[in-house]
Design a protein around this nucleic acid. Structure first.
Lengths: 141, 141
DNA sequence: TTGTTCATGTAAGAATTCTGACATACCATT
DNA sequence: AATGGTATGTCAGAATTCTTACATGAACAA
């Protein structure tokens, strides 16, 4: 049969693509893209982070993050000071509306992730996470 | 500490992003993007496939695949008949130059993948593949 | 102080990919 | 034969993301 389809790189891409698709479907009713969700998600964990830092955490360029943040600012899900307090960093944080929307989004995403892992035992899940972490480490993340 | 960073979905995205980045770096000297490589790769396994089928195999829309194929056609890496033999399908295949370039690209990509898995034992590698396959199956791939 | 290096934010433009829409051809059912 | 459903290829336009480039501010060394 086809060999490559069983190799790690391909299955990795397949899993990630499918996860993203299902997340996109789940978040669609909330008018959120996966990228936007990732951004809000990280903002909850690290309020006051810079746009550049946020970009690194979500695997985007800071330019892309900047235009995305503008949309979230327009929707009042996120807020930034008009001027930097010090340096050039504009610390970004969620608004109350942002926290609420993220909460609903999180429930959807948790459902998708649980579905993804439904065929795996607890030990298999931690094993999967460890394996992926080893890949990240080896690739120099 | 930060909880989400250790969850499966995030690590999965992190691993895939990093793998793609390293592949992009490795393929850059060959003037190939990862998407183009994926396309050529699948064409070797399944010569005569339709553009729509190719799109499904590489997780793109057929519209995106169509414009990418046009580039590969211009570079004489790929060939299609001017008219469909039957139906609307235009069977696509690699040219000799396409096979050669893919061969060089494959060596680069194999190196990256080997590096990614360098921290894992053979049994851990198959375990990782199985885990990811289970995710794909559960998400309805 | 001065100069260098680095990180941040932003702008402009290109490239990639997607969405919506349409015509065409095959296939199964009636 | 006629019809409805499905798949393919393509066009047009929008949205997203990236590349290149520049100005500003901080940290650090000479």
């Amino acid at each position: 049969m086809n060999n490559r389809e069983q190799q790690v790189g391909y299955v990795l891409k397949q899993a990630q693509s499918l996860l993203r698709l299902r997340m996109e479907e789940a978040l669609n009713p909330l008018a959120l893209t996966v990228s936007q969700y990732s951004c809000l998600h990280h903002l909850l964990r690290e309020p006051g982070i810079s746009a550049a830092g946020l970009a690194r955490a979500t695997f985007m360029t800071r330019q892309s993050m900047s235009s995305m943040l503008q949309q979230l600012l327009d929707r009042r899900l996120v807020e930034r000071p008009a001027r930097p307090e010090s340096g050039r960093v504009l610390p970004t944080a969620l608004t109350a509306a942002g926290v609420d929307l993220l909460s609903a989004a999180q429930a959807e995403v948790n459902g998708v992730e649980e579905r993804m892992l439904s065929g795996l035992s607890p030990s298999e899940r931690t094993s999967l996470t460890r394996g992926l972490s080893a890949c990240v480490k080896a690739l120099g993340g």
